[in-house]
Design a protein around this nucleic acid. Structure first.
Lengths: 173, 173
DNA sequence: GACAAATTTCTGAAATTTCAGAAAATAGGC
DNA sequence: GCCTATTTTCTGAAATTTCAGAAATTTGTC
């Protein structure tokens, strides 16, 4: 496989965006590469195309797999793994949302819960109230994200596209 | 001002969460401190309470102000600034959403736009299609976030709380 | 407008993160 | 079941980020 000028540009940009989103540049670049690739690639090919160390590619692909953003496929008579990305952008968004919920929001909910209990035990009503408010926010975010997972991609897409209309509607309730 | 056991625990936890969300620990801790504080604090007091360097507090507060999560107030006959946090959690969420949109999504939209143009110019229809799909996703995220800004906090809260119901509804369309 | 309190910016040190190279483990084909 | 291609893990070096201390700037009062 050979990358076009444009593809390379996208991959670089995607890598840059990644760093802003807290994703290592090389991980984001690999994701970008698989997103624009027309056929599955081997790890070796990716090293070549992006000039990354084999170890780095291995670790980054594993991370992407843990987000369910990249699949690994095997082919008969070939012991190498072939990788391809989830290219339905809505499905992609859904999976990122789910993983972030799991890794980031879920932990926060627990932490605040613990603090709320401590505040009550201490009889600190001011702090308890603050913890309760924060808990409501985190729980709601958690709920929205969880429910979103239940629906299929086209629903997710429609929900997002309708977001503004829905908000407008709700503002009149 | 004196911090209770619970408050200190929350502040530390909040700092930990911050690092997961890409926010420096000391910045997140200051935000946590102001969130649980019962009255506005001076920078000096915050140094004392959290054992941070004055310079660090200054920089972090400025960052929090840029997210509109912290206000600065002045008092007559006192040249120091007094800081307090936005403590309405829904308003807080709205402001974070807006800043992240501005800093993270907006740039991605432009980058992909540029790549889409390049792909078309190159006659690379495969890449162009991928860019268009990505553009749709980013634009929608951008739109939802932008529209959400227009409504007041209670609408934002209600919208989030209703999220699951709305999704369920849409799934039937 | 001078002075002092308060804040911000600058600089570099410490800690963390990212990533390459080498060594170890795994796995598929014969 | 052995052999080797492939992948993963381990280690440390390079880059980045975070943050303290010092110096510079700003701000408000007199």
């Amino acid at each position: 496989m050979q990358l076009s000028e444009t593809q390379m540009k996208f991959i670089r940009r995607w890598g840059d965006m990644g760093t802003r989103w807290g994703i290592p540049r090389s991980t984001a670049m690999l994701h970008g590469l698989l997103y624009v690739a027309q056929s599955p690639l081997t790890a070796e090919e990716m090293c070549e195309l992006l000039q990354l160390a084999r170890s780095n590619v291995s670790t980054s692909l594993k991370e992407l797999e843990s987000y369910n953003l990249v699949y690994r496929e095997s082919r008969p008579g070939d012991r190498r793994s072939f990788y391809r990305a989830e290219c339905d952008v809505w499905e992609m968004a859904r999976r990122i949302l789910e993983e972030r919920r799991r890794r980031e929001t879920a932990g926060a909910v627990l932490a605040v819960e613990e603090c709320l209990a401590a505040a009550k035990a201490e009889g600190d009503s001011h702090t308890a109230a603050r913890m309760e408010a924060m808990q409501e926010l985190l729980q709601t975010a958690e709920n929205v994200a969880t429910v979103a997972q239940r629906y299929n991609t086209s629903v997710f897409r429609r929900a997002a596209l309708m977001g503004s209309k829905v908000l407008a509607l709700i503002s009149k309730l």
